[in-house]
Protein backbone atom coordinates (compact mmCIF):
# COMPACT_ATOMS: atom_id res chain seq x y z
CA UNK A 1 0.00 0.00 0.00
CA UNK A 2 1.45 3.37 -0.98
CA UNK A 3 1.26 6.47 1.18
CA UNK A 4 -1.17 8.10 -1.22
CA UNK A 5 -3.48 5.13 -1.02
CA UNK A 6 -3.38 5.20 2.78
CA UNK A 7 -4.30 8.88 2.77
CA UNK A 8 -7.20 8.22 0.40
CA UNK A 9 -8.52 5.46 2.68
CA UNK A 10 -8.34 7.78 5.71
CA UNK A 11 -10.32 10.43 3.82
CA UNK A 12 -12.98 7.86 2.90
CA UNK A 13 -13.26 6.71 6.53
CA UNK A 14 -13.64 10.32 7.64
CA UNK A 15 -16.35 11.04 5.06
CA UNK A 16 -18.23 7.87 6.01
CA UNK A 17 -18.11 8.69 9.73
CA UNK A 18 -19.28 12.21 8.96
CA UNK A 19 -22.21 10.97 6.87
CA UNK A 20 -23.11 8.22 9.30
CA UNK A 21 -23.04 10.20 12.54
CA UNK A 22 -22.79 13.95 11.99
CA UNK A 23 -25.16 14.74 9.12
CA UNK A 24 -28.85 15.30 10.04
CA UNK A 25 -31.12 12.58 8.57
CA UNK A 26 -32.92 12.17 6.29
CA UNK A 27 -31.73 14.56 3.60
CA UNK A 28 -34.33 15.73 1.14
CA UNK A 29 -34.05 18.37 -1.58
CA UNK A 30 -37.09 20.51 -2.26
CA UNK A 31 -38.32 20.74 -5.86
CA UNK A 32 -36.65 24.15 -6.35
CA UNK A 33 -33.30 22.93 -5.02
CA UNK A 34 -33.65 19.83 -7.23
CA UNK A 35 -34.11 21.91 -10.35
CA UNK A 36 -31.19 24.16 -9.41
CA UNK A 37 -28.96 21.07 -9.08
CA UNK A 38 -30.17 19.74 -12.44
CA UNK A 39 -29.51 23.11 -14.08
CA UNK A 40 -26.02 23.28 -12.59
CA UNK A 41 -25.16 19.79 -13.89
CA UNK A 42 -26.48 20.74 -17.33
CA UNK A 43 -24.30 23.84 -17.31
CA UNK A 44 -21.17 21.85 -16.42
CA UNK A 45 -22.01 19.37 -19.21
CA UNK A 46 -22.26 22.26 -21.66
CA UNK A 47 -18.85 23.52 -20.60
CA UNK A 48 -17.41 20.02 -21.05
CA UNK A 49 -19.04 19.88 -24.48
CA UNK A 50 -17.45 23.11 -25.60
CA UNK A 51 -14.05 22.19 -24.15
CA UNK A 52 -14.16 18.79 -25.85
CA UNK A 53 -14.81 20.36 -29.24
CA UNK A 54 -11.81 22.58 -28.61
CA UNK A 55 -9.77 19.42 -28.25
CA UNK A 56 -9.61 18.91 -24.47
CA UNK A 57 -10.74 15.32 -23.85
CA UNK A 58 -12.42 14.32 -20.60
CA UNK A 59 -11.00 11.38 -18.66
CA UNK A 60 -13.11 8.31 -17.94
CA UNK A 61 -13.17 9.20 -14.24
CA UNK A 62 -15.10 12.37 -15.05
CA UNK A 63 -17.72 10.22 -16.81
CA UNK A 64 -17.90 7.93 -13.76
CA UNK A 65 -18.33 10.96 -11.53
CA UNK A 66 -21.22 12.30 -13.58
CA UNK A 67 -22.96 8.93 -13.78
CA UNK A 68 -22.51 8.59 -10.01
CA UNK A 69 -24.09 11.98 -9.40
CA UNK A 70 -26.92 11.22 -11.81
CA UNK A 71 -27.70 8.07 -9.88
CA UNK A 72 -27.24 9.35 -6.32
CA UNK A 73 -28.70 12.88 -6.33
CA UNK A 74 -32.21 11.96 -7.58
CA UNK A 75 -32.56 9.57 -4.62
CA UNK A 76 -32.78 12.68 -2.43
CA UNK A 77 -34.96 14.70 -4.78
CA UNK A 78 -38.70 15.14 -4.46
CA UNK A 79 -39.43 15.15 -8.18
CA UNK A 80 -41.27 12.38 -9.97
CA UNK A 81 -41.62 11.45 -13.61
CA UNK A 82 -44.56 10.23 -15.68
CA UNK A 83 -44.43 6.51 -16.45
CA UNK A 84 -46.36 5.48 -19.56
CA UNK A 85 -47.80 1.98 -19.54
CA UNK A 86 -46.71 -0.41 -22.29
CA UNK A 87 -49.01 -3.19 -23.59
CA UNK A 88 -46.76 -6.07 -22.50
CA UNK A 89 -46.81 -4.86 -18.89
CA UNK A 90 -50.55 -4.36 -18.97
CA UNK A 91 -50.86 -7.95 -20.22
CA UNK A 92 -49.33 -9.27 -16.98
CA UNK A 93 -51.66 -7.09 -14.94
CA UNK A 94 -54.71 -8.09 -16.97
CA UNK A 95 -53.83 -11.77 -16.71
CA UNK A 96 -53.63 -11.55 -12.91
CA UNK A 97 -56.78 -9.47 -12.56
CA UNK A 98 -58.72 -11.90 -14.75
CA UNK A 99 -58.06 -14.76 -12.31
CA UNK A 100 -60.78 -15.79 -9.89
CA UNK A 101 -60.07 -15.63 -6.15
CA UNK A 102 -58.53 -18.94 -5.10
CA UNK A 103 -56.76 -19.46 -8.45
CA UNK A 104 -53.26 -20.88 -8.16
CA UNK A 105 -50.31 -18.86 -9.38
CA UNK A 106 -46.84 -20.36 -9.76
CA UNK A 107 -43.92 -17.98 -9.29
CA UNK A 108 -40.44 -19.18 -10.13
CA UNK A 109 -37.55 -17.16 -8.70
CA UNK A 110 -34.61 -17.72 -11.00
CA UNK A 111 -32.23 -15.00 -9.90
CA UNK A 112 -29.87 -14.14 -7.08
CA UNK A 113 -29.08 -10.99 -5.06
CA UNK A 114 -26.99 -9.27 -7.80
CA UNK A 115 -30.14 -8.92 -9.94
CA UNK A 116 -32.38 -7.97 -7.04
CA UNK A 117 -32.55 -4.20 -7.77
CA UNK A 118 -34.40 -4.95 -11.01
CA UNK A 119 -36.38 -8.04 -10.13
CA UNK A 120 -37.20 -7.64 -6.44
CA UNK A 121 -39.65 -4.74 -7.01
CA UNK A 122 -41.44 -6.89 -9.62
CA UNK A 123 -41.67 -9.78 -7.16
CA UNK A 124 -43.02 -7.57 -4.39
CA UNK A 125 -45.65 -5.91 -6.57
CA UNK A 126 -46.67 -9.24 -8.07
CA UNK A 127 -47.10 -10.83 -4.63
CA UNK A 128 -49.01 -7.83 -3.34
CA UNK A 129 -51.33 -7.79 -6.34
CA UNK A 130 -51.98 -11.55 -6.13
CA UNK A 131 -52.57 -11.62 -2.38
CA UNK A 132 -54.81 -8.57 -2.44
CA UNK A 133 -56.95 -10.41 -4.99
CA UNK A 134 -57.03 -13.60 -2.90
CA UNK A 135 -54.96 -15.67 -5.30
CA UNK A 136 -52.89 -18.57 -3.99
CA UNK A 137 -49.14 -18.41 -4.59
CA UNK A 138 -46.82 -21.37 -5.15
CA UNK A 139 -43.17 -20.31 -5.05
CA UNK A 140 -40.17 -22.24 -6.35
CA UNK A 141 -36.68 -21.58 -7.69
CA UNK A 142 -34.21 -23.03 -10.14
CA UNK A 143 -31.46 -20.79 -8.76
CA UNK A 144 -30.24 -21.68 -5.27
CA UNK A 145 -30.79 -18.20 -3.85
CA UNK A 146 -34.11 -17.62 -5.62
CA UNK A 147 -36.42 -18.97 -2.90
CA UNK A 148 -34.61 -16.79 -0.33
CA UNK A 149 -35.31 -13.74 -2.45
CA UNK A 150 -38.93 -14.90 -2.49
CA UNK A 151 -38.94 -15.12 1.32
CA UNK A 152 -37.68 -11.53 1.55
CA UNK A 153 -40.32 -10.31 -0.92
CA UNK A 154 -43.09 -12.23 0.84
CA UNK A 155 -42.11 -10.94 4.28
CA UNK A 156 -42.28 -7.40 2.97
CA UNK A 157 -45.59 -8.00 1.19
CA UNK A 158 -47.22 -9.43 4.30
CA UNK A 159 -46.44 -6.20 6.16
CA UNK A 160 -48.73 -4.07 3.99
CA UNK A 161 -51.85 -3.31 6.07
CA UNK A 162 -54.31 -4.48 3.43
CA UNK A 163 -52.47 -7.83 3.18
CA UNK A 164 -51.78 -8.17 6.92
CA UNK A 165 -55.49 -7.77 7.66
CA UNK A 166 -56.23 -10.91 5.66
CA UNK A 167 -54.33 -13.07 8.18
CA UNK A 168 -52.86 -15.21 5.44
CA UNK A 169 -51.46 -18.56 6.45
CA UNK A 170 -48.46 -20.40 5.10
CA UNK A 171 -49.40 -23.67 3.42
CA UNK A 172 -52.93 -22.51 2.68
CA UNK A 173 -52.50 -19.13 1.00
CA UNK A 174 -48.90 -19.40 -0.13
CA UNK A 175 -46.20 -22.04 -0.23
CA UNK A 176 -42.48 -21.89 -0.89
CA UNK A 177 -41.33 -25.17 -2.43
CA UNK A 178 -37.69 -24.10 -2.37
CA UNK A 179 -34.84 -24.72 -4.76
CA UNK A 180 -34.24 -27.74 -6.94
CA UNK A 181 -31.12 -28.36 -8.98
CA UNK A 182 -31.35 -29.70 -12.51
CA UNK A 183 -32.23 -26.61 -14.57
CA UNK A 184 -34.68 -27.32 -17.42
CA UNK A 185 -34.88 -30.98 -16.46
CA UNK A 186 -36.70 -29.86 -13.31
CA UNK A 187 -39.30 -28.09 -15.47
CA UNK A 188 -39.57 -31.18 -17.63
CA UNK A 189 -40.24 -33.42 -14.62
CA UNK A 190 -42.69 -30.91 -13.16
CA UNK A 191 -44.71 -31.33 -16.34
CA UNK A 192 -45.42 -34.86 -15.13
CA UNK A 193 -45.47 -34.40 -11.38
CA UNK A 194 -44.51 -31.49 -9.10
CA UNK A 195 -44.04 -33.80 -6.15
CA UNK A 196 -41.27 -35.79 -7.81
CA UNK A 197 -39.16 -32.63 -7.93
CA UNK A 198 -40.30 -31.08 -4.66
CA UNK A 199 -40.95 -33.88 -2.17
CA UNK A 200 -40.83 -31.25 0.59
CA UNK A 201 -41.12 -27.49 0.79
CA UNK A 202 -38.42 -25.05 1.89
CA UNK A 203 -39.00 -25.90 5.56
CA UNK A 204 -38.97 -29.65 5.03
CA UNK A 205 -42.76 -30.15 5.27
CA UNK A 206 -43.92 -33.02 3.05
CA UNK A 207 -45.64 -31.96 -0.19
CA UNK A 208 -48.84 -33.80 0.65
CA UNK A 209 -49.11 -32.10 4.04
CA UNK A 210 -49.43 -28.69 2.39
CA UNK A 211 -53.15 -28.05 1.75
CA UNK A 212 -52.47 -25.54 -1.03
CA UNK A 213 -50.51 -27.91 -3.25
CA UNK A 214 -51.89 -31.28 -2.17
CA UNK A 215 -54.13 -31.34 -5.24
CA UNK A 216 -51.63 -29.67 -7.55
CA UNK A 217 -50.23 -32.43 -9.66
CA UNK A 218 -48.61 -30.60 -12.56
CA UNK A 219 -48.84 -27.48 -14.71
CA UNK A 220 -52.43 -28.18 -15.67
CA UNK A 221 -53.46 -27.25 -12.12
CA UNK A 222 -51.76 -23.87 -12.34
CA UNK A 223 -53.86 -20.98 -13.61
CA UNK A 224 -51.06 -18.55 -14.34
CA UNK A 225 -47.31 -18.61 -13.89
CA UNK A 226 -44.96 -15.69 -13.45
CA UNK A 227 -41.30 -16.16 -13.94
CA UNK A 228 -38.50 -13.90 -12.70
CA UNK A 229 -35.34 -14.49 -14.64
CA UNK A 230 -31.78 -13.22 -14.65
CA UNK A 231 -30.08 -15.75 -16.94
CA UNK A 232 -29.82 -19.50 -17.34
CA UNK A 233 -31.96 -21.40 -16.49
CA UNK A 234 -34.52 -18.76 -17.26
CA UNK A 235 -37.45 -17.65 -19.34
CA UNK A 236 -36.18 -19.36 -22.50
CA UNK A 237 -36.18 -22.74 -20.79
CA UNK A 238 -39.58 -22.14 -19.19
CA UNK A 239 -41.08 -21.20 -22.55
CA UNK A 240 -39.56 -24.17 -24.33
CA UNK A 241 -40.63 -26.76 -21.80
CA UNK A 242 -43.50 -25.53 -19.64
CA UNK A 243 -45.26 -23.32 -22.20
CA UNK A 244 -44.66 -25.08 -25.50
CA UNK A 245 -44.84 -28.64 -24.21
CA UNK A 246 -47.27 -28.44 -21.33
CA UNK A 247 -49.36 -25.43 -22.30
CA UNK A 248 -48.67 -23.37 -19.19
CA UNK A 249 -49.95 -19.79 -19.33
CA UNK A 250 -46.96 -17.72 -18.30
CA UNK A 251 -45.74 -14.15 -18.01
CA UNK A 252 -42.19 -13.13 -17.21
CA UNK A 253 -40.12 -10.47 -15.52
CA UNK A 254 -36.60 -10.19 -16.88
CA UNK A 255 -33.45 -8.24 -16.22
CA UNK A 256 -33.11 -5.60 -18.92
CA UNK A 257 -30.00 -7.32 -20.33
CA UNK A 258 -32.02 -10.22 -21.70
CA UNK A 259 -35.35 -8.51 -22.31
CA UNK A 260 -34.85 -7.98 -26.06
CA UNK A 261 -34.39 -11.73 -26.48
CA UNK A 262 -37.83 -12.36 -24.99
CA UNK A 263 -39.85 -10.17 -27.36
CA UNK A 264 -40.13 -12.85 -30.07
CA UNK A 265 -41.81 -15.11 -27.50
CA UNK A 266 -44.14 -12.33 -26.51
CA UNK A 267 -45.17 -11.65 -30.08
CA UNK A 268 -45.74 -15.36 -30.70
CA UNK A 269 -47.96 -15.38 -27.59
CA UNK A 270 -45.68 -17.93 -25.91
CA UNK A 271 -45.47 -15.36 -23.13
CA UNK A 272 -48.50 -13.63 -21.68
CA UNK A 273 -46.94 -10.36 -20.60
CA UNK A 274 -43.38 -9.23 -20.03
CA UNK A 275 -41.76 -6.86 -17.56
CA UNK A 276 -38.35 -5.66 -18.72
CA UNK A 277 -35.89 -4.32 -16.17
CA UNK A 278 -36.51 -1.52 -13.73
CA UNK A 279 -38.69 0.29 -16.25
CA UNK A 280 -40.98 -2.74 -16.51
CA UNK A 281 -41.11 -2.97 -12.71
CA UNK A 282 -42.08 0.70 -12.43
CA UNK A 283 -44.76 0.34 -15.09
CA UNK A 284 -46.15 -2.70 -13.31
CA UNK A 285 -46.29 -0.74 -10.06
CA UNK A 286 -48.28 1.90 -11.91
CA UNK A 287 -50.60 -0.64 -13.54
CA UNK A 288 -51.32 -2.22 -10.18
CA UNK A 289 -51.49 1.19 -8.51
CA UNK A 290 -48.97 0.03 -5.92
CA UNK A 291 -46.16 2.57 -5.99
CA UNK A 292 -42.90 1.15 -4.68
CA UNK A 293 -39.16 1.27 -5.06
CA UNK A 294 -39.06 0.84 -8.84
CA UNK A 295 -41.04 4.04 -9.41
CA UNK A 296 -38.74 5.89 -7.04
CA UNK A 297 -35.63 4.52 -8.75
CA UNK A 298 -36.89 5.50 -12.20
CA UNK A 299 -35.87 9.14 -11.68
CA UNK A 300 -32.28 8.05 -11.06
CA UNK A 301 -32.52 5.73 -14.02
CA UNK A 302 -33.69 8.48 -16.36
CA UNK A 303 -31.07 10.93 -15.10
CA UNK A 304 -28.29 8.41 -15.65
CA UNK A 305 -29.58 7.70 -19.15
CA UNK A 306 -29.54 11.42 -19.93
CA UNK A 307 -25.93 11.62 -18.73
CA UNK A 308 -24.95 8.62 -20.88
CA UNK A 309 -26.67 10.17 -23.92
CA UNK A 310 -24.99 13.50 -23.19
CA UNK A 311 -21.56 11.89 -23.14
CA UNK A 312 -22.34 9.96 -26.34
CA UNK A 313 -23.13 13.30 -27.99
CA UNK A 314 -20.01 14.91 -26.51
CA UNK A 315 -17.86 11.99 -27.67
CA UNK A 316 -19.23 12.05 -31.19
CA UNK A 317 -19.01 15.82 -31.44
CA UNK A 318 -15.40 15.61 -30.36
CA UNK A 319 -14.79 12.90 -32.94
CA UNK A 320 -16.30 14.80 -35.88
CA UNK A 321 -15.90 18.48 -34.98
CA UNK A 322 -12.80 18.13 -32.82
CA UNK A 323 -10.89 16.66 -35.73
CA UNK A 324 -11.41 19.83 -37.77
CA UNK A 325 -10.47 22.15 -34.92
CA UNK A 326 -7.35 20.14 -34.20
CA UNK A 327 -6.31 20.44 -37.83
CA UNK A 328 -6.99 24.17 -37.73
CA UNK A 329 -4.85 24.45 -34.61
CA UNK A 330 -2.03 22.55 -36.27
CA UNK A 331 -2.27 24.74 -39.37
CA UNK A 332 -2.31 27.88 -37.26
CA UNK A 333 0.82 26.66 -35.51
CA UNK A 334 2.31 26.39 -38.97
CA UNK A 335 3.41 22.84 -38.52
CA UNK A 336 1.28 20.52 -40.66
CA UNK A 337 2.77 16.99 -40.80
Amino acid sequence: MTRGELMAYLVIVAVVLLLAFAVPKPISFSTTVSYIIVGFIALVLLIIFVRTIQGNMVGRRIVFLFVGMAVILPLFMTISQPIPLSPEVKQVYDAVVALKPGSKVLVSFDYDPPSAPELQPMAETFFRLCLSRDLKIVIMGLWPQGPQQAEIAMRKTLEYPEIASKNLRYGIDYVNLGFQTGNEFVIQRMGGDFKSMFPTDLNGTAYDSLPLVRNVRNFSNIDYAFHLSAGYPGTVEWVQVAVDRYGLKMGAGNTAVQTTQMYPYLRARQLVGLLGGLNGAAEFERAADMIGKATKFMVSQSFSHIIVIAFIIIGNAAFFLGDKSRKRKQEAAGGGH
Binding site: V71, P117, E118, T260, S300, H305
Partner: peptide, 16 residues
Protein backbone atom coordinates in the same frame (compact mmCIF):
# COMPACT_ATOMS: atom_id res chain seq x y z
CA UNK B 1 -29.49 0.11 -24.57
CA UNK B 2 -31.27 -2.38 -22.35
CA UNK B 3 -27.92 -3.50 -20.96
CA UNK B 4 -26.98 0.05 -20.04
CA UNK B 5 -30.34 0.31 -18.30
CA UNK B 6 -29.69 -2.94 -16.45
CA UNK B 7 -26.26 -1.89 -15.24
CA UNK B 8 -27.59 1.47 -14.10
CA UNK B 9 -30.34 -0.29 -12.16
CA UNK B 10 -27.72 -2.33 -10.34
CA UNK B 11 -25.80 0.82 -9.47
CA UNK B 12 -29.01 2.51 -8.28
CA UNK B 13 -29.74 -0.53 -6.11
CA UNK B 14 -26.30 -0.31 -4.52
CA UNK B 15 -26.50 3.45 -3.99
CA UNK B 16 -29.92 3.05 -2.40
Amino acid sequence: GYTVMSRMSLLIGRMD
